[in-house]
Amino acid sequence: MTLKLQHITQQFQDGDDTLTVVENLDFEVNKGELVAIIGPSGCGKSTVLSIAGALQTPTSGDVFINGKNISNYPKNKLADVRLKNIGYIFQASNLVPFLMVKDQLKVVADLNNTWDEKRADELLEAVGMSHRKKQHIQHLSGGEKQRVAIARAFMNDPELILADEPTASLDASRSEEIVALIAHEVHTRNKAAVIVTHDESVLPYCDIIYEMQQGKLVKQKETSQ
């Protein structure tokens, strides 16, 4: 099991009130599975993703990544987990503004001291960006930036890929292209992946679909590929 959330509860303090966004949630994702989480805005699906991605520590409950409980890890160790075990694809591609396409991949590799130029070339080829690898990212379109972000997410060969509304800033035909690409990479590279989205056109590419309801995840559909 690549990702396992156990009895997760997340509460926020809103003035005098305590807001429970996630309540006693259990969730698992296995290798080779592409899981989608859907639900209305503000239902807490991104919170689940940030907890699964070691960006946020839940109020209570345990997070297992590759079987290791990271709930009580200090900040530095969490940064290492994010670096080595998780690949992120954000809503805004969140690339480093002053770097060329290829250097975007080099940053994460350098942080991990494992720069492999061949791998970077191969990844950029896979996302169809190899012809622009010497370009600065300000010259790229939104879809192209997202492709680079996908390549970056796979660069350190993480076991888990997390995508937060990866298609939100793209038009319909581009978003289908991007999700198809994520799905293809996840399946060929045998990774576990979670996509948080409210874009219905994404769903046909996903293996399992959960919907966020009252702080819990409810399985909607399971397709076998």
Binding site: A79, D80, Y88, F90, N94, P97, V107, V108, L111, N112
Partner: peptide, 15 residues
């Protein structure tokens, strides 16, 4: 913002 992004993808404050 940029530091936040770099931290999210695994950079440590120290570096």
């Amino acid at each position: 913002q940029q530091f936040g992004i770099l931290k999210a993808i695994g950079a440590k404050s120290k570096s």
